[in-house]
Simulated scan of single mutants.
Amino acid sequence: MRNGPDIARTAALIGDPARAAMLAALMDGRALTARELSETAGIMPQTASSHLAKLEAGGLLARARQGRHAYLRLAGPEVAALLEGLMTFAAPRTSRVRPGPRDADLREARVCYNHLAGRRGVQMYDALMRSGALAEGPVATAAMGRALAPLEVDPTGLPGRAPLCRDCLDWSERRSHLSGRLGRAILAAMEARHWVRRDPASRAIRFTPPGARAFDATFPPG
């Protein structure tokens, strides 16, 4: 087939175990050096450089230079959504009964590139749908501003050209959580108000006791 997207090329890039490990390490939105990524994948730095060059050429990674150091990050939220979707698809084909990560903290709440995922992310999405702040699409309605008033997030004034709202199929919950500019802004606001803090050693997001209470009040569980 000569027309259409080159799915095979992208699949081959992600399909190598070392490259998949390095991509997964960047799912929390951080930028890492080639050496850090080589350690994550358990391969030699020279081998990692070759893999990273292929991922960059394939549009999956972006490189930024700061001083003498070069850092690599996922090329954008669409790459994170692709990886989360692949994790969701691949999970039932493992020997584990439950999909998603084994770590309970990661299942509870984690960062997916730049937005909230896990049980808490799905809770937020469902609460916004029940309140009418979010409609199928997903689309933010006129009620979204009121729903996000405790976080002081104005959905009409968010910068950027990416979609305001996006569905992202959750790896562990198998239901949608919210991505897009609005999902990013909500997570940033929760961090600024100390509702949550990131685990520096993983993708886990931990709620502070006051933050958990405020989150449940803003996004009540069903």
Rank of each mutant, 00 (worst) to 15 (best):
Arg119Lys: 09
Gly121Gln: 08
Met190Lys: 05
Ala21Gln: 12
Gly180Thr: 04
Glu84Met: 10
Val97Glu: 10
Arg96Pro: 00
Pro17Tyr: 11
Cys165Val: 03
Thr47Val: 15
Ala117Pro: 10
Leu37Ile: 06
Arg193His: 11
Val111Ala: 15
Glu78Thr: 07
Asp199Phe: 03
Arg197Ala: 06
Gly29Ile: 06
Arg110Asn: 12
Ala64Asn: 10
Leu178Asp: 02
Met1Glu: 02
Tyr125Asp: 01
Ala91Thr: 06
His69Phe: 12
Ala41Trp: 07
Arg35His: 07
Ala48Gly: 14
Ala80Lys: 06
Leu134Asp: 06
Arg102Ala: 03
Ala189Leu: 00
Thr40Met: 10
Ala25Met: 07
Ala104Asn: 00
Leu116Ser: 05
Ala31Tyr: 12
Asp170Leu: 11
Cys165Ala: 11
Arg68Thr: 08
Arg107Tyr: 12
Val79Cys: 03
Ser38Leu: 01
Ala57Tyr: 11
Ala133Met: 03
Val79Gly: 11
Ala91Ile: 02
Pro209Lys: 13
Ala109Gly: 14
Gly58Val: 05
Arg120Ala: 09
Pro5Gly: 10
Val97Cys: 03
Ile205Pro: 08
Ala8Gln: 14
Leu82Ser: 13
Lys54Asp: 14
Glu36Val: 07
Pro77Asp: 13
Ser202Met: 14
Glu191Trp: 00
Gly157His: 02
Asn3Asp: 13
Phe89Ser: 08
Ala81Cys: 13
Glu36Arg: 15
Pro163Thr: 08
Thr141Val: 02
Gln66Trp: 10
Arg193Ala: 09
Ile14Tyr: 06
Leu32Ile: 04
Ala162Tyr: 08
Arg146Val: 03
Glu56Pro: 00
Ser179Glu: 11
Glu136Ile: 12
Leu164Gly: 03
Leu158Ala: 00
Ala214Met: 02
Ala188Gly: 09
Leu148Gln: 03
Glu136Arg: 15
Glu152Ala: 10
Phe219Tyr: 13
Asn3Gly: 12
Leu32Tyr: 06
Arg19Lys: 12
Ala62Lys: 08
Pro150Asn: 04
Ala81Leu: 14
Ala34His: 10
Pro220Gly: 04
Pro159Met: 09
Ala147Gly: 00
Asp28Met: 12
Ser38Phe: 04
Ser179Leu: 06
Gly160Tyr: 12
Thr94Leu: 15
Ile7Val: 13
Leu82Phe: 08
Arg98Tyr: 12
Glu36Pro: 04
Ala204Asp: 05
Leu151Phe: 09
Pro99Gln: 08
Arg213Lys: 15
Arg181Asn: 10
Met190Arg: 07
Arg146Gln: 03
Val153Glu: 05
Arg161Leu: 11
Arg110Trp: 15
Gly160Phe: 13
Pro155Val: 01
Gly211Glu: 00
Phe89His: 11
Gly58Ala: 03
Ala41Thr: 11
Glu191Gln: 14
Met129Ile: 09
Met190Trp: 06
Tyr113Gly: 01
Ala81Trp: 07
Arg175Thr: 14
Ala12Val: 14
Gly121Glu: 05
Leu151Asp: 02
Met124Val: 01
Arg184Lys: 03
Pro159His: 12
